[in-house]
Each structure stands twice: as structure tokens, then as C-alpha cells.
């Protein structure tokens, strides 16, 4: 099959970028979008041109490295699918396909389709954990966790930190990402002692990173490859509010 790619090319963070056109031929339906870029890059290298820089690693949808906008949608047209698992059978022969990096103030572009998402690490460092030094844990079964709570906690913990939620949000808000961690830990008994403080600290970091505010649009939920629910944001708001009253 054939596709006509339009890819954002930008040499470094300070250089201006632009869309470049790359017609691709002899593609297979079974290829992933990233494998198509591999093929393109092999051709570019042989021609002496600069290959397209894009981030990727596990290529099975779990590491969260990959991700870019495809025709304006984070991770492309298939729900619950990262670009590494998105195969070309979801595109029409001859289709024009636009690939652009995540765009958010807090995610500066490094090169082509690669952005810097270290702000997400700093949000976790601010409080996205349970403080338990190695060796000071009680026996696992002394902390019973109801199956419902464990399951909902796991739903939120499935976040892969890819940043699609931020890229999809018109406000470039990190509310779904932050809420997912707050929900994961806050739903478990182990997470209670630090629950409100955690929300305060993490939200403060989100603000410092200049992510936008959440205005309940829901684009984040629509593109999340792990189907994290908006409910996570509600949990964040609730813990934040409780913390604002109780923590001093």
C-alpha cells in the first residue's frame, strides 16, 4: 500500500521546524506506524539525509516511550493503542497522514517528533509515592485490600506516562496523569497516611511546571492508551481540597 506522510522536522529545540512530505510505497498492512518510520529512516540514511528522530523502546505498548499526533489525534485513530502497536491496516491506501510531536509548553521539542517529558518525573518526585524504606514492610497479608479497591487502584496504576493526555488537552493539562497516580495510591490503605499531602505536593509541582488547568473537557480520557478514566481527576481534586483544609 501507499501513504503520503507529512512529518514535523525540527533540527533542535531552538531551530524553527516545518512539515516535510514523504511519499511511501510498498508498505504492508501488517507494519506498525513505527516500523514504517524505520523503513523511511533506512531510505533517508542511504540517501544521505537526516533520519526522523522519534522516541520508542518496548514496542508493545507498555513502556510509554512512543507517541506523537497522527492526523491531529494523540496516538492516532485506534482507541487504547499506542503508535507502536498501531498497524497500517487502519489507514486507507494513498491516505495523507500528518505526524507531529506532542505540543505543550511543559514538553519542549528536542528534535523532530521527540519531546522532553521530564516534567512528569518531577511530578512523581514531588510526592507520587508511598514513603516506605527498603526493609521496613510488614507481611503482605497484614494489609487487607478489598478486591474492588485493588481493581480500581490497578485501573489507575496502568498509566504508562506517555503524555498523550497532555498533548490532547487544549489546555495542556497534566490532570489525568497526576490524578492517575493520586488515585492509584489513594485507593489503597497503604496510601492513606500521605494521601492529602501527596495531592498538595504533586499539584504544586504541576503548577510549577506550567501545565494548564483542567476544565473537564475529557480529550485526555478519549486518547489515553490505557483507558484511564476522568474519575482519577475527581479523586485528585477531592484529595487536594481535603488537603487544603487539613494540612498545615
Amino acid at each position: 500500500m501507499k501513504l503520503i506522510l507529512h512529518i514535523w522536522r525540527q533540527k533542535n529545540p531552538s531551530a524553527p521546524g516545518k512539515m516535510m512530505r514523504y511519499p511511501m510505497d510498498n508498505l504492508s498492512h501488517e507494519m506498525s506506524v513505527l516500523e514504517m518510520l524505520d523503513v523511511l529512516n533506512e531510505q533517508l540514511i542511504v540517501k544521505g539525509e537526516r533520519p526522523v528522530t522519534f522516541e520508542h523502546d518496548c514496542r508493545e505498548g507498555i513502556c510509554g516511550s512512543c507517541g506523537f499526533m497522527i492526523n491531529g489525534v494523540a496516538h492516532g485513530p485506534m482507541p487504547a493503542t499506542t503508535v507502536c502497536q498501531l498497524t497500517l491496516r487502519h489507514f486507507k491506501d494513498g491516505e495523507e497522514v500528518y505526524l507531529e510531536p506532542w505540543r505543550a509548553h511543559a514538553f519542549p521539542i528536542l528534535k523532530d517528533l521527540m519531546v522532553n517529558r521530564s516534567a512528569l518525573d518531577r511530578i512523581i518526585a514531588a510526592g507520587g509515592y508511598i514513603s516506605v524504606p527498603t526493609g521496613s514492610a510488614p507481611d503482605g497479608n497484614t494489609i487487607p485490600v478489598g478486591k474492588g479497591d485493588a481493581d480500581r487502584s490497578m485501573d489507575a496504576a496502568a498509566c504508562i506516562g506517555c503524555g498523550a493526555c497532555v498533548a490532547a488537552c487544549p489546555n495542556a493539562s497534566a490532570a489525568l496523569f497526576t490524578g492517575a497516580k493520586i488515585a492509584h495510591l489513594g485507593l489503597l490503605p497503604q496510601g492513606q497516611p500521605e494521601r492529602n499531602k501527596r495531592a498538595l505536593k504533586m499539584v504544586a509541582q504541576v503548577t510549577r511546571e506550567l501545565f494548564g488547568s483542567c476544565s473537564n473537557i475529557g480529550e485526555c480520557e478519549a486518547v489515553c492508551p490505557k483507558e484511564i478514566r476522568l474519575e482519577a481527576i475527581a479523586r485528585m481534586n477531592r484529595d487536594f481540597l481535603a488537603g487544603s483544609w487539613t494540612e498545615r
Binding site: 516506605v132 514492610a137 503482605g140 497479608n141 485490600v145 478489598g146 495510591l185 489503597l188 497503604q190
Partner: peptide, 18 residues
Amino acid sequence: DQCVAQGVPFAREYGGTL
């Protein structure tokens, strides 16, 4: 034990045990 204390959401039985 360490991982449970860290908040790893291991699968649970209805009674709350691992």
C-alpha cells in the same frame, strides 16, 4: 512485603488477601 507496602496493586481475593 516490600512491594505491597509501596502500593503495588497486586491481585486480591474478595476477603482482601493476596
